[in-house]
Simulated assay, not measured.
Amino acid sequence: MGKSIASRFDNIDIAKSTLRAVIINDDELTLEMDFCLEPDHEDYETPLEGEDCCWHPGMLKFAGISKLQLDRRDAASDTMQRRFAIEKFNIEGTKFDMECEWGDIHLAARSIRVLTE
């Protein structure tokens, strides 16, 4: 049996992680992330000098989307920002909600995967 969604975030500090990109493709949504890994994560490395996290690229992939609401903030589209801070993050079953500097994302999906590169 696969791991639960919550356990896939073990040793990842979501509050410090950032969103890099939102990619929509048919019934799929991919969120490119810079995850802030905690010391017990298998990919953890000592942070570089001046950094407070072990930054590691990754993705949240949602497939079989039955509901999708993207509310992009005007301020986000006016700047060439590379990372967007996460303000609220919640996954319950097939439902996902995130508020961040980029905007708000609400969806329901058949499949939610957490991938680290």
Rank of each mutant, 00 (worst) to 15 (best):
E117M: 11
C100F: 03
D52M: 10
I23V: 07
A21D: 10
I105H: 01
S66W: 06
E38L: 15
I23S: 00
W102E: 02
G64E: 02
P57G: 15
G93M: 08
E99K: 04
L70F: 00
N11Q: 09
A21Y: 01
A108M: 04
E45R: 14
W102C: 03
T94D: 09
I5F: 13
D104T: 15
R8D: 09
H56P: 01
H106R: 01
C54M: 04
G103M: 06
T94P: 00
Q69E: 13
T116G: 02
R8H: 08
N11L: 02
P47V: 06
L29W: 06
D97V: 07
G58D: 05
D97R: 08
K61P: 00
S66D: 05
E28Q: 08
C54P: 04
G50V: 05
M1H: 09
A15Q: 14
R83K: 10
S4F: 05
V114F: 05
F96E: 10
M59R: 14
Q69K: 15
D26Q: 14
S17A: 13
G58E: 04
Q81A: 12
G58N: 00
T30C: 06
D26H: 13
L19H: 09
V22L: 11
L70C: 03
T18I: 11
E49F: 14
F62E: 08
K88Y: 07
D74R: 05
A21E: 09
A76C: 02
L37I: 11
T94L: 06
E51L: 12
W55Y: 14
V22E: 06
F9N: 01
C100I: 04
